[in-house]
Design a protein around this nucleic acid. Structure first.
Length: 455
RNA sequence: GUGAUUGUAGCUCAGCUGGUUAGAGCGCUGGUUUGUGGCACCAGAGGUCGCCGGUUCGAACCCGGUCUUUCACCCCA
């Protein structure tokens, strides 16, 4: 028999990991609800036609396809196979695993447009799958925590995204991070201003790597992507720009003077900042990064990305506004904005920074131990009393020697042991031992209950 | 998808230029202690050296393939 194993890029989560994941998940969930978002779930698999073409060619390649059930070859003939995978694929696979939560959400909105009350604010916490090569902080199955609003163009949503990110990070104990903000319209404006209008796509992809590979390499890449060198030179002052928020905005108003879209982008950004101000919020952690691009092709307005400083993990959260995502499913004129937390990456970050609180691991409070059948039966009765009082309690289920039962409590991190022996049975008490201090005293069951209630 | 890299006990890792029976620490099981855990001491179990094939008198070690890990590119949470 061969050893069992997991598919590449997937993981099991044991009790300790789940306790920690739930700490993150619950924090995010609480925040989403605090801001008025409602939870939904969608199926793990979607029709392939729902998924393909939404993430670019690159994304299509990373989709997991599900082989049709039964005789999956029945529609395929030898010509199809000779024509290659692109022709054969749609005939053998009609479904795929979701790649993100935004596209299934767009599908959901279109299908339920008559039932939903707009603006519709929903959150969704589910795994997604990408056939990527795994790396640190990069898995083939991972969870996303999305919050999106559709049916309004109000920039209040953008402002609230900033607030939610800060809320979650504060609760998680993260204090050193940047919420990078930009606007696709600004990037579009830049491509117009440098005389390469319509090329913001490739511009974004190249520019996004600026802090990673440096300006020289970005220049080369832009050249390879067909940008004229005088256009690339016009970018230089932007790249070299070192000033504060106000300075950047002033500079852009001048730089983008000829671009209507570009100016719109700047004013959207200003309005978002103004709304934050009105809400009494400061701009802590907010970093207007003109060079922030993000690859996803459907963004049209604000874009966000969050990076924790001083860790080896990439971005832990990202998002943006998309004007017409539902358009591809036949419902146009619905603007949406949303963002996503990557739980798995947040987990890695918190672990790297050693920020998981002890309490997130707390399980059973009390283990009842016994020496013989008589004590075991007494413990069964006492156990129920503890559980009825809301105290997390368990009994060692076999009659074995005391050492084994104490070892069990130790390893499971159970802080108290209630010993049930002949003396205790006779006096209707428990010998309550605190495993941390080693102190032990005989107490009535009710006394133990009131003592442990606080735990 | 491209180019590297990793794999030996449950875990972390030794294992010389290919040479008898593959080791250590931790963990695990049992005992010293049949009403008391952590500490100590003693004993023990546990490995098709990722998998398949090849070279060789002989392979954990060399070669090929494959899977897995990690990393860079691409892209991204």
């Amino acid at each position: 028999m061969q050893k069992p194993s997991l598919p590449k890029g997937t993981r099991d989560f044991g009790p300790v990991q789940m306790a920690r994941r739930n700490f993150i998940l619950n924090t995010i969930k609480d925040t989403f609800q605090l801001f008025g978002y409602q939870q939904i779930e969608t199926p793990a698999m979607e029709n392939l036609s729902t998924l393909t073409g939404k993430y670019g060619d690159e994304g299509d390649q990373l989709l997991f396809k599900i082989l049709n059930s039964g005789d999956f070859l029945k529609k395929v003939n030898s010509d199809d196979i000779a024509s290659g995978a692109a022709v054969t694929l749609p005939k053998v696979a009609e479904k795929g695993l979701r790649y993100d939560l935004t596209v299934p959400f767009a599908r959901y909105v279109v299908m339920n447009r008559n039932e939903l009350t707009f603006p519709f604010k929903r959150f969704q916490i589910q795994p997604v799958w990408r056939a990527d090569r795994p790396q640190k902080g990069r898995y083939r199955e991972f969870y996303q925590c999305d919050a999106d609003v559709v049916g309004t163009e109000s920039l209040v949503c953008e402002a609230e995204i900033v607030l939610m990110i800060r809320d979650v990070f504060t609760k998680l104990g993260l204090s050193s991070y940047d919420i990078k903000v930009n606007n696709r319209k600004i990037l579009t404006g830049i491509s117009e201003a440098i005389g390469e209008s319509g090329k913001e796509g490739p511009l974004c992809v190249a520019i996004d790597k600026l802090d990673k590979i440096g300006w020289q390499k970005v220049k080369e890449e832009l050249g390879e992507r067909g940008f004229a060198s005088q256009s690339v030179d016009k970018l230089e002052p932007l790249v070299q720009l070192e000033t504060d928020l106000k300075g950047k905005i002033a500079f852009l108003k001048d730089f983008l003077a000829t671009s209507e879209v570009g100016l719109k982008g700047v004013s959207e950004l200003e309005e978002m900042l103004d709304i934050l101000d009105q809400m009494g919020a400061n701009l802590e952690h907010v970093d207007f990064d003109i060079m922030l691009a993000r690859g996803l092709s459907y963004y049209t307005g604000a874009i966000f990305e969050v990076k924790v400083k001083g860790v080896s993990i990439g971005s832990v959260s990202g998002g943006g506004r998309y004007d017409n995502l539902t358009g591809v499913f036949g419902l146009s004129g619905v603007s949406g904005v949303g963002f996503s937390f990557g739980v798995d990456r947040l987990y890695d970050v918190l672990e790297e920074l050693d920020l998981f609180p002890e309490e997130s691991l707390k399980g059973t409070t009390l283990l009842l131990t016994h020496f013989d059948q008589k004590g075991f039966r007494y413990a069964l009765n006492v156990l129920t009393q503890f559980r009825n009082a809301g105290i997390k309690a368990e009994i060692y289920p076999d009659v074995v020697k005391a050492k084994k039962q104490f070892d069990f409590a130790n390893k499971k991190g159970i802080p108290f042991v209630g010993i049930c022996g002949d003396n205790e049975i006779a006096t209707e008490t428990l010998a309550l031992k605190n495993l941390e201090t080693g102190n032990q005293e005989n107490l009535k069951v009710e006394e133990v209950i009131s003592l442990l209630k606080g735990n």
